[in-house]
Design a protein around this nucleic acid. Structure first.
Length: 741
RNA sequence: GCGCUUUUAGCUCAGUUGGUUAGAGCGUUCGAUUCACAUUCGAAAGGUCUCAGGUUCGAAUCCUGAAAGGCGCACCA
């Protein structure tokens, strides 16, 4: 308000421009309206685009599957970055006339979800899953997922993501369940899935196995004990595992122990009395560590298990699935390992077998990153995918691996990246991918939880049956385990398109164009999709992988609850708008590099949205009497060309996945060139009626249109909202307008 | 241990194939602004481009080495 109480002079409407422009851009209001418009149009669905003549029926397909967020989760900045990047690619492809499809979905996240629900139930009712029973627990989980599914879906929508919701998929819905069963059966029939006793990562807290990749190593300080073991000294942080240790291992070239022969036995005094130890010479013993001698616990250590297998040694379980010592521990049997440790050390001290104790030993302990506890390796009968086993590929469209060739899953995964049938951006991740493959062991896919895809195998005394449906006849019992969540995720590109049915979608949209995700799940997911898709449909799942960085706080720290530095995307959206939130996650974020995000950045881009709003207001005010046939002066034509050049360059950057550079360029053109220079220069010209003015009006209008189109993939809401208020335009919705060329 | 990655203004980062006086945003200082702008516009200050060598007419950019952060994998008796 001005001093005399009248309206400030800028709030006026003498040019008859839309009312909305008289106020600053209001994201909350405009975003809601704009989203409704997009939803009504149905143009996220490529079929509708073709039906309405907006996409040519024979146009090049362009598809992306959304990495499905966990059903039970809420939107975080990582999701927001992913949605922003993929929506940019999708909107850009759509505006370029491609047959564009972006498939939404959610993931059941077996372990994480069940762990969460179990924890909640225990907190409220002090009941465990065994108290409730399988059926009741599943019911509770279903209720919980149904409820939170709506939450995550709505949050995804607020970002402005132009996903085709008519094709929404959930990893546990009927179609996807069937696909997972089919995938298992086919791999089983090909001999690529087997059941075997192997050492696995056991989580005593969640009572399930966990895959190698889901293990997170944490530093921990524990005492390190040196014990007298006959004539030797052995070291350990885990005295509680030592009951069964009856092999003493040393390097064959270790001269200190040249006098001991492989297979020689030695009688010695141990925790619960005299034992006979056998000398084993194996190169796994490191001469430089401690005394160079170690005892092994094959049942509870991966490395020890391998040594035992090499030499055909006895393997005895010492600790049970809940972390309780077994009868082999003698007087300590029945105790929990946590409590037993100090008692064992006490006893060894009393027996004079403790050489020394290093109190401040820092080492890594394995934990389950999916909300579980400390990992205890155990030998268990589990299901595995054989990655090194040769098989004949029954159908293949991949070059270099023709139908009928003998290959292995590992070779397949390597080959398609080596031959660039799958490109990875940034390129450096290819090396990391190869390294991972080279170290890959058979993949443990069974989990001892209840929520998930149940293993389609039935047993009846000695019979084993594997099939998508239960076998006929009485007495069959289904395997109680469910599949690793990444098994179902591995077929995501094909299951979302309707596989194993030979759907039109599958034919048109597979392989997908791009798989876009954070680099942290390159192994979990990207590599597994290549494996599964290669075997099941003989195609790569995607032609291009684009890996974005992790979103960190302004100081580069990981966002976490304990640091209290979490920036909530929904919070940013409500304060500054979805467009500003998107831009803050795009500009300055080079591929594969972590993004440092601070609220200031988001605020800055809100100003830009408002700038665009006011540019439009100015142009509309100045062009209310535009002559659309006016001839452009040479200067004005040059300015239009300049805008086109800018878009051309930005397009190149988008094609090369440098969205950060593209967005930055357009941003600067619009603000510094268009608003600060071109519009400023135009003001005097627009005051004088005549040819120069008519030309200026057309030029301003043209550049506005180009700017809106070029910005649309990056900030879809404000550009569409503005577009809707333009009197002259070449498409009803900016979303389906043609990309300027 | 193996590998990747980062280091450019007070802060966050651009700088794509080597090419005039190295750029932007934020911040700081000064100024303008009733006439598109819950602001905007203009200007200033601020950099031995981590360090040491090398290639070159010319290096922030290419090569070698070092230092300091970050990350992954492996080891962890």
């Amino acid at each position: 308000m001005s001093k005399d109480g009248s309206k400030p002079s800028h709030i006026r409407n003498d040019a008859g421009i839309p009312e909305a422009f008289l106020k600053p851009y209001n994201p909350a209001e405009e975003e809601l309206k704009t989203r409704a418009l997009w939803d009504e149009s149905g143009y996220a669905n490529p079929d509708k685009m073709i039906a309405d003549g907006l996409t040519a029926p024979d146009a090049e397909p362009y598809s992306i599957v959304l990495p499905p967020p966990n059903v039970t989760g809420t939107l975080h900045m990582g999701h927001a970055a992913m949605l922003a990047i993929e929506d940019i690619l999708i909107r850009y492809a759509r505006m370029n006339g491609k047959k564009t499809l972006w498939i939404p979905g959610t993931d059941s996240a077996a372990i994480a979800t069940q762990a969460k629900v179990e924890t909640d139930i225990y907190k409220k009712e002090k009941q465990t899953r065994y108290d409730l029973g399988r059926e009741e627990l599943m019911k509770r989980i279903d209720e919980f997922t149904e409820e939170s599914k709506a939450t995550i879906i709505n949050q995804v929508r607020t970002m402005g993501a132009s996903l085709d919701w008519s094709r929404y998929a959930y990893t546990l819905d009927e179609t996807r369940y069937k696909a997972v069963m089919e995938a298992f059966v086919r791999m089983y029939d090909a001999g690529l899935i087997y059941r075997g006793n192997r050492i696995v990562n056991w989580d005593p807290k969640l009572q399930t196995t966990v895959s190698d990749d889901e293990i997170e190593y944490l530093e921990q300080k524990d005492p390190f004990y040196y014990f007298k073991y006959g004539p030797f000294v052995i070291g350990t942080v885990r005295p509680e595992t030592k009951f069964g240790d009856k092999y003493v291992v040393m390097h064959p070239n270790d001269e200190r122990y040249a006098g001991y022969k492989h297979g020689q036995t030695i009688d010695l005094e141990w925790i619960n009395g005299p034992i006979t130890a056998t000398v084993i010479k194996d190169e796994a013993a490191n001469m430089d560590v401690g005394s160079g001698v170690m005892t092994i616990t094959p049942a509870h250590s991966g490395v020890d298990f391998e040594i035992a297998q090499r030499h055909g040694l006895d393997i005895e379980q010492v600790i049970d699935e809940r972390g309780i010592l077994l009868p082999i521990a003698g007087e300590f049997a029945g105790q929990h390992i946590k409590k037993a440790r100090s008692l064992i050390v006490e006893k060894l001290t009393a027996k004079g077998l403790v050489e020394k104790i290093d109190e401040n030993y820092v080492h890594n302990v394995a934990t389950n990153s999916r909300g579980g506890g400390l990992i205890e390796p155990q030998i268990k009968k589990q299901w595995f995918v054989a990655v090194n086993k040769e098989f004949t590929i029954s159908h293949s469209e991949m070059s270099g691996i023709p139908t009928g060739t003998m290959t292995t899953l590992k070779k397949l995964m390597r080959h398609v990246v080596e031959t660039q049938q799958v490109k990875i951006a940034p390129e450096r991740f290819e090396k990391i991918y190869y390294h991972w493959i080279d170290n890959l062991r058979d993949w443990n896919i069974s989990r001892q939880i209840w929520f998930g895809h149940r293993i389609p195998v039935w047993y009846r005394s000695d019979e084993v049956y594997c099939g998508t449906e239960a076998p006929g006849g009485d007495g069959w019992e289904q395997d109680p385990d469910v599949l690793d969540t990444w098994f179902s995720s591995g077929i995501w590109t094909i299951s979302t398109l309707g596989w194993p049915e030979e759907t039109a979608d599958l034919k048109t949209f597979h392989p997908t164009a791009v798989l876009e995700t954070g680099y942290d799940i390159l192994f979990f997911w990207v590599a597994r999709m290549v494996l599964m898709s290669g075997f099941l449909v003989g195609q790569v799942p995607f032609k291009q992988v684009y890996l974005h960085g992790l979103v960190r706080d302004g100081q580069g720290r990981k966002m976490s609850k304990s640091l209290g530095n979490i920036i909530d995307p929904l919070d940013m959206i409500s304060k500054y708008g979805a467009d500003a939130t998107r831009l803050s996650l795009i500009i300055g974020a080079a591929p594969g590099m972590d993004i440092k995000l601070s609220e200031d950045r988001v605020r800055g881009y809100k100003h830009f949205a408002n700038k665009l709003w006011n540019i439009t207001r100015f142009v509309l005010e100045s062009t209310h009497d535009i002559d659309v046939d006016a001839k452009l002066s040479e200067t004005d034509a040059k300015l239009v060309t300049e805008a086109h050049e800018l878009v051309k360059n930005a397009s190149k950057n988008i094609d090369a996945f440098r969205l950060d550079l593209a967005a930055d360029e357009i941003y600067h053109f619009v603000w510094d060139r268009f608003a600060a220079e071109i519009i400023e220069e135009s003001k005097p010209i627009l005051k004088e009626p005549g040819e120069a003015r008519a030309s200026r009006q057309r030029m301003l209008h043209k550049i506005l249109i180009i700017s809106l189109k070029a910005l649309h993939p990056f900030m879809p809401y404000v550009t569409e909202a503005v577009w809707q208020k333009l009197p002259q335009k070449d498409a009803e919705l900016l979303m389906v307008a043609k990309w300027p060329k």
